[in-house]
Write a protein that binds this DNA or RNA. Structure first.
Length: 201
DNA sequence: TCTACGATCTTT
DNA sequence: AAGATCGTAGAT
């Protein structure tokens, strides 16, 4: 039996708080189910790494909308990046899903990954969008309704690790160094794990 | 319109 | 260390 959907209000908080509580929750799309193991918070209003730093654009519009919706965008011309919109409507903030443990739909995931043999390692945000079969048409999709892309209640993380966010060299140093990347401690489903430090929950 | 570049990943 | 690959944003 499927787990309970996370309610809209879950997302209506600061992105960093939502990020912490998303660890261990599940993302489902069709038969594919993933357990969230690594996330990054893109906060509002003071975050020079945030896509919303320069105001409203056609691409980032879902981030300015109500919480509990997806924000999906194409990165480097090939990677579909999945974010979950947080805070309140009118505040551009979201949590980037960076890594997950696959829990269902392994065959579909493998096919989407090109049918390669070997373990399916979903570490890094590009692989999450690929495993879920996402593209930009999912941007703005609600996450709290059955059907389509859903986020369900999962087993919370016992312990978490923190570190600075990846790939934001364009941001101010204060925001580059902010420890707004969170992961399930000691999970194999984490990217750049050496740059994390463990902290008690 | 034009141009530079990116919240990446894989291969060398 | 560098190539793939293309939509977006800001400038012209």
């Amino acid at each position: 039996m499927p787990g309970r959907l996370l309610p809209r209000q879950f997302y209506a908080r600061d992105a960093l708080e939502v990020a912490r509580d998303l660890l261990g929750q599940e993302i489902w799309h069709g038969e594919v189910g993933l357990r969230i193991t690594e996330v990054e918070a893109y906060r509002y209003p003071h975050d020079s790494a945030n896509h919303c730093r320069a105001g409203l654009t056609a691409r980032n519009a879902p981030m300015w909308g109500p919480p509990g919706h997806a924000y999906v965008y194409l990165c480097y011309g090939l990677h579909q990046m999945l974010n979950l919109v947080t805070n309140r409507e009118g505040e551009g903030a979201a949590v980037l899903i960076r890594s997950c443990e696959p829990i269902a739909g392994h065959a579909t995931i493998r096919r989407r990954r090109g049918g390669k043999e070997g373990p399916v390692l979903l570490t890094g945000p590009g692989k999450i969008g690929q495993a879920l079969g996402l593209d930009a048409t999912f941007s703005g999709h609600p996450l709290y309704r059955r059907g389509g892309l859903e986020v369900r209640e999962g087993a919370p993380a016992a312990e978490i690790a923190v570190g600075s966010r990846i790939g934001i060299g364009y941001a101010e140093r204060e925001h580059q160094e902010a420890e707004w990347r969170l992961a399930v401690a000691n999970s194999p489903w984490v990217s750049h794990a050496r740059q994390l430090r463990g902290v008690a929950r």
